[in-house]
């Protein structure tokens, strides 16, 4: 009952939210929604202990796939978005064969290399990827009406509602996976792969599974982005964006589901409200780098650890010290 009220309040808040924002803030809100899916999908991969530097490129795979499929085959945009996710998942499956011969640091570097190769292919092949200029005039979401509300996708508010529903469903699925025996197995693979394997867990299969699912959802986020901004190019998915994703995840903390989302929201607000107001937008990468270093030094468990401190104290009355770690 209490949960239901919280969810209704959250939904109401999200419906009202864009209406109290300026146009440019509404646009930021759409990007934020898409980025939340991006960073939440990244967390699923980190559950198995692997950190990829190719996640944003995989997002781009979804973006390119959906943009091209809708343009060339006339696939409706919503199905294109789904297809974008599936293509990203399939590419990830193919990449997993070379990549999961590696672990840890080597996987990190391997994933970066794989991502750069994909970006090179986009740049090299004018047909169909549009070369360095990328794709323009990507099909927008067609407007439609649900009786009480008209979706007009020239309005960021409408796209926000649409994206929020898609992202909401995706987050629900990610959450269900994490809280399931599959999620437990991901944890097991991460923390003690020897024991997991001795319990019959196929490590390679589970690492691949996490990578493929995470990539699928990253692809959906990319497709959502493509049909919103209407133009994408290889630099939309370069390593700078990847650094942002890493920063959101690390600053937020990756030991809870909400940690990376929290990091994404807080840093986006910081970026928009503070940096833009102060006219420091150009220095964004610098400031992000600084925040990343400071948070690793002084807040190694992320923003989530601060939230946990308060919620745990309320729940248990008394907090065991090892839980504060």
């Amino acid at each position: 009952m209490r949960n239901l009220i919280i969810w209704i309040a959250l939904a109401a808040g999200l419906i009202v939210l864009p209406n109290v924002l300026s146009f440019s803030q509404q646009e930021v809100l759409v990007f934020l929604t898409i980025n939340i899916l991006l960073v939440a999908s990244y967390r699923l991969l980190t559950l198995t202990g692997e950190w990829s530097l190719g996640h944003v490129v995989i997002m781009g795979v979804g973006a390119y796939a959906s943009a091209l499929l809708t343009k060339t085959t006339g696939l409706p945009v919503p199905l294109g978005i789904l297809a974008g996710g599936m293509v990203a998942a399939l590419i990830a499956l193919a990449l997993s064969y070379p990549l999961f011969r590696m672990k840890g640091f080597y996987f990190l570097i391997g994933s970066f290399a794989a991502g750069e190769i994909i970006r090179l292919l986009w740049k090299r092949f004018r047909d169909p990827f549009g070369g360095t200029k990328g794709l323009k005039g990507i099909d927008p979401m067609p407007d439609f009406s649900v009786g009480f509300y008209n979706f007009d996708f020239f309005e960021p508010t409408s796209y926000f509602y649409f994206a929020a529903i898609v992202v909401g469903v995706c987050l629900w699925i990610l959450w269900r996976i994490e809280k399931s025996p599959v999620g437990l197995t991901f944890h097991a693979v991460h923390w003690q792969d020897k024991l997991a394997q001795a319990s019959g867990v196929n490590l390679r299969a589970y690492r691949t599974l996490a990578f493929v699912i995470a990539s699928g959802f990253a692809g959906i986020s990319g497709a959502l982005l493509a049909h919103y901004i209407g133009t994408i190019n290889p630099n939309s998915f370069d390593v700078e964006v990847m650094v942002f994703v890493l920063t959101w995840a690390i600053v937020g903390g990756t030991s809870t589901f909400y940690g990376p989302i929290l990091g994404c929201v807080v840093l986006t607000i910081l970026n928009e409200v503070v940096l833009r107001e102060l006219g420091l937008e150009q220095t964004r990468p610098l400031i992000y780098g600084l925040i990343l270093i400071l948070s690793i030094l002084f807040m190694p468990n992320g923003l989530e650890s601060i939230v946990q401190k308060f919620t745990r104290r309320k729940e248990a009355g008394l907090m065991r010290p090892e839980e504060a770690k």
């Binding site: 025996p181 437990l184 197995t185 944890h187 923390w191 003690q192 319990s199 019959g200 599974l209």
Partner: peptide, 25 residues
């Protein structure tokens, strides 16, 4: 002792049931 130190005792044992109750995503 090789265990999942971060997980609860019950969760550790649940990993042990992986084979008879294979998770399905």
């Amino acid at each position: 002792s090789t265990l999942f130190a971060e997980l609860t005792v019950l969760e550790n044992a649940l990993v042990g049931t992986h084979m008879p109750f294979r998770p399905n995503i």
